[in-house]
Nucleic acid binder design. Structure first.
Lengths: 162, 162
DNA sequence: GTCCCTATACTCGGATAGCAAGTGTCCGAGTATAGGCGG
DNA sequence: CCGCCTATACTCGGACACTTGCTATCCGAGTATAGGGAC
């Protein structure tokens, strides 16, 4: 099991976009430069965020991206689902309904106990992600990043924000 | 993000193996037939379980697999880690250390707040899986499977177990 | 000097190749069994 | 008749092709801007 690298990039981008004023915008190229990742590939993931309404796209010159709603209302789960898709990681293929001990279909009204256990675990994972917002992450970053680093990032930010 | 199909197969196999007496064994071919999955590919996953000590392999004629320890001491997490590998799903590539706002390496002693949030969620997932044993699953199955289905499976089982 | 128009340059968006990991398969190494042989 | 030996057949174990999905990229559609021209 492996999460796409795009998830990490998308979350980092959202934390940066949290500092963009509501009428401003930050181009994808700037975000790619800031994180030193392939611009075209990052753009692909930003499009996923845009489709999900997490970020808002502004076309044309002076355009770019900004958050589609307040940082406190964007959970990490929203971002993960937008990038990775909403399908569950565990997919029950109902192998219990096959083989020499198989029964008529109506015998399988109740969900498979194994699938239920796996889905419960996945729900715990999603709950944890849903309980953390971009605003929370920004606060945590503010507590762990040194003032010098914050100043350096702020200086870069003021040059590329619009 | 997607879990391998082998995880589902491995868990189902362990629930079946829970019924094998301590001095008995069940060949991989029988497990493949019971679940109607490719025998060679299932064998690959059973080997992973064997390496992890979850199942015990008995070579030669009258050989096969049995659980390596009591069903109550085999958690779903053990199985998932054996099949999928122990690497975390989220991998922090430390992109915060790159780009125009990067700082000297010693500025990054504290772990990335984003990675920490992702790992916390993953820990919740693992805790949930660790809290469910094969014995628990067997009990749940006993409660949800119809008596007729159980009898049919038991009949098949008594013919292939050794 | 002011307003309007047009050409421009920059943005996002979807469609297109390349590669790695999961999927599926095969053949070889090892062992308990079953049968045959000798005592 | 009993014990030993050997050949057999069945098991697991690791090494080899193939396919799906992630990784990475490019080009086209749309828009606010900036400059030039007309009034």
């Amino acid at each position: 099991m492996r999460l796409s690298d795009g998830v990490e990039w998308a979350i980092h981008c959202c934390t940066v976009l949290a500092f963009v004023p509501p009428d401003g915008a930050l181009p994808a190229s700037a975000l790619a430069e800031f994180h030193e990742v392939p611009p075209a590939y990052l753009a692909k993931h930003l499009q996923s965020l845009s489709r999900a309404g997490i970020v808002e796209a502004v076309p044309g010159p002076k355009g770019g991206y900004r958050l589609g709603r307040p940082p406190a209302e964007v959970s990490l789960l929203d971002i993960v689902l937008a990038v990775e898709g909403a399908e569950p990681a565990f997919r029950c293929t109902e192998i219990r309904q096959r083989g020499p001990a198989a029964m008529p279909e109506r015998a399988y009204r109740l969900p498979c106990a194994i699938a239920r256990a796996m889905w419960d675990a996945e729900e715990a994972w999603r709950d944890s992600l849903a309980g953390t917002s971009v605003a929370d992450v920004v606060v945590s970053l503010g507590e762990t990043v040194s003032p010098k680093a914050a100043a350096k990032a702020a200086a870069w930010f003021s040059e590329v924000v619009r």
